[in-house]
Nucleic acid binder design. Structure first.
Length: 415
RNA sequence: GUGAGUGUCGCCUAGUGGUCUAAGGCGCCAGGUUGUGGCCCUGGAGAACGAGGGUUCAAAUCCCUCCACUCACCCCA
C-alpha cells in the first residue's frame, strides 16, 4: 500500500476547520496592518536560497530538496519564505512603490530532516515581510502584528523573546569577544558546542544542556557590543514596545538560525516547555536585498509554522469555528421519488441551500440513519404518495416533528 | 546523521509459546416496522498479528535482520 512520504501528511477533512480558521485570522490581521498577499512558486533557483540563507547553515547544507530539472537548471523546493519574497520584490520593481512594501504569504515549506512532533519535511508557514525602511517603529509594528495574531487566535501564555545581534559593522567585534570568552571553557562544553565554537559561535548561546546554559548565561551579551546606530535602534524599539504594552523579555541568548538576520531578532514561544516549541520568529535582514543584487534595502519579517499553531490550539483546548455543511438531506422511496430528489436537490442548491441527496438504493431507515450521522437540521422525505399529491414531508431532525407540505413551500421553510 | 520506544481489522485495544485459521470496543453495513434516524437488541463484513529468516513438536507471543512509525538530539516553524 502506498503511504505519504516520510515527514508529510494528509490534512483530512476533520482537521480542515483548524486550517480555515488560521487562514481567516491571517487574512484578517494582514488586512489590519496593511499587508498584501504574494504567492511565489514552490521552487526557485537553488542559488537564491544558498546565498541568502547561508552556505554554512543546516538548511543549505543538508536540508534542501534540490534537483536538476530536465533543462539542466538547479532547482530547490523552497525551504523558507523570505528569500522568494525578496526575489519577487526585486524582480517586479516593488521598490518603486511607497516604502515599506508589506507582503505576506501562507505556503508550504520543504526541508529534508528527521520528522518529529511539530516538525515535518513539508510544512506550512505563514509569514510577512516589511521591506524598505529601518525605522525601529517598523520593528515594533512587525512584532506587534505577530503578537496580536496569536492573541486573536485565542492562544495564551505566550512569551515574547527579543534580542539584537548587531549589524555587519559591530557583530564581528562581538563574535571575537564571544569566542575569546568561550576559549576558556572548551573543556566543559558539550560535543555539539565544541563544533559550534568553530562553525557558528552565536549558536553556542542557545544550547539546552544545563552546563552549557550556565556558561552561556554569563557570556558577553551582544547588546553590550552594538555600534551606536544599532544601540539607538534597539533602545527605540524597546520604547515602542513599551508604548504598545507588549510583554517582551530581552533574551541575550536568543539567536536565529539563518545567516541573513541583523539587529532585531525575536521569537514567540508558548510558556509551557516543550521541544520545537517556537511558534514563530523573525527579525531584520537589512543586507539581504543588497546581497541578492538590489540596492541597499533594510527589511524585517516574521514567520510562523501552521502545524505548530494547531498543535498549541489543541494543547490549549481552544475551540475553532465549525465549517459550514449542508443542513438538508433528501430521502426518497421509489423511482419517481428518486427523479424528484435529483431535481429538487439541484433547485435548492441553485438557491443557495446546501443539500445532500440520498445516493444508492438504501432503505428509508438507512437514509435517515445517514441523515442523522451527517447532522443535518432537516430531512425532506419523498415517496409515491407525496409525488401524487405534489407534496413532500419535512422532518425536523432535532425535534422529530414532521409535516407534509406543498413542494413549492419547501424552499421558504428551509431558509 | 545519532539515540530511545513502538508495530495485532478503518480507529483504539486484549492476547507474552499450544484453548488464536486471533477477542472486544468504536466506526461501517444489515435486520428488529410493511415508507422513518438518534437509545436498545441481533447479525454481518473486516486482521493469516509490519516484512523476511531462525529457534521449537508448536510463535502474534522467543531470537536475528530489515522496514515503517513515534519521540528526542542536531537544527528549526
Amino acid at each position: 500500500m502506498y503511504r505519504v512520504p516520510r515527514g508529510t501528511s494528509d490534512i483530512l477533512p476533520k482537521e480542515q476547520a483548524y486550517w480555515r480558521y488560521i487562514e481567516q485570522e491571517v487574512a484578517n490581521i494582514c488586512q489590519l496592518y496593511g499587508y498584501e498577499r504574494l504567492d511565489a512558486p514552490a521552487f526557485e533557483d537553488t542559488q537564491l536560497f544558498s546565498r541568502s540563507v547561508g552556505e554554512g547553515t543546516d538548511i543549505v547544507e543538508k536540508q534542501m530538496y534540490t534537483f536538476q530539472d530536465r533543462g539542466g537548471n538547479q532547482i530547490t523546493l523552497r525551504p523558507e519564505g523570505t528569500a522568494p519574497i525578496c526575489r519577487a520584490y526585486l524582480e517586479h520593481g516593488l521598490h518603486s512603490l511607497p516604502q515599506p512594501v508589506k507582503l505576506y504569504y501562507i505556503t508550504s515549506i520543504f526541508r529534508y530532516e528527521r520528522p518529529q512532533s511539530g516538525r515535518y519535511r513539508q510544512h506550512y508557514q505563514f509569514g510577512y515581510e516589511a521591506i524598505g525602511d529601518d525605522d525601529p517603529a517598523l520593528d515594533a509594528e512587525v512584532i506587534d502584528t505577530a503578537w496580536q495574531f496569536f492573541l486573536a487566535l485565542g492562544l495564551h501564555l505566550l512569551s515574547l523573546q527579543l534580542n539584537s545581534i548587531g549589524c555587519k559593522k559591530c557583530r564581528p567585534g562581538y563574535l571575537t569577544v564571544l569566542k575569546d570568552y568561550y576559549a576558556n571553557y572548551t573543556r566543559d562544553l558539550c560535543s555539539d558546542c565544541k563544533t559550534r565554537l568553530k562553525r557558528n559561535p552565536l549558536r553556542l548561546l542557545d544550547c539546552k544542556k544545563p552546563l552549557c546554559q550556565q556558561i552561556a548565561n554569563s557570556a558577553p551579551r551582544s547588546i553590550d557590543y552594538l555600534c551606536q546606530q544599532c544601540d539607538t535602534h534597539f533602545n527605540k524599539l524597546k520604547r515602542y514596545l513599551e508604548l504598545l504594552e507588549l510583554p517582551f523579555i530581552v533574551n541575550h541568548c536568543l539567536v536565529r538560525g539563518l545567516d541573513y538576520y541583523t539587529r532585531t531578532v525575536f521569537e514567540i514561544q508558548p510558556e509551557a516547555e516543550g521541544a520545537q516549541s517556537t511558534l514563530g520568529g523573525g527579525g531584520r535582514y537589512d543586507d539581504l536585498i543588497e546581497e541578492l543584487g538590489g540596492k541597499p534595502t533594510p527589511a524585517i519579517g516574521f514567520a510562523s509554522g501552521i502545524e505548530r499553531i494547531i498543535l498549541n490550539l489543541k494543547r490549549q483546548n481552544i475551540p475553532v469555528p465549525a465549517l459550514p455543511r449542508p443542513r438538508v438531506f433528501i430521502a426518497n422511496v421509489g423511482d419517481e421519488a428518486k427523479d424528484e430528489t435529483v431535481k429538487l436537490a439541484s433547485t435548492l442548491r441553485k438557491n443557495g441551500i446546501g443539500v445532500i441527496e440520498a445516493i444508492g438504493s438504501k432503505s428509508l431507515k438507512a437514509q435517515l440513519r445517514q441523515a442523522n450521522t451527517l447532522g443535518v437540521h432537516h430531512t425532506v422525505i419523498i415517496g409515491d404518495e407525496e409525488i401524487k399529491a405534489g407534496t413532500v414531508i419535512l422532518r425536523d431532525m432535532t425535534t422529530a416533528q414532521q409535516k407534509t407540505i406543498l413542494i413549492n413551500q419547501l424552499q421558504g421553510l428551509l431558509k
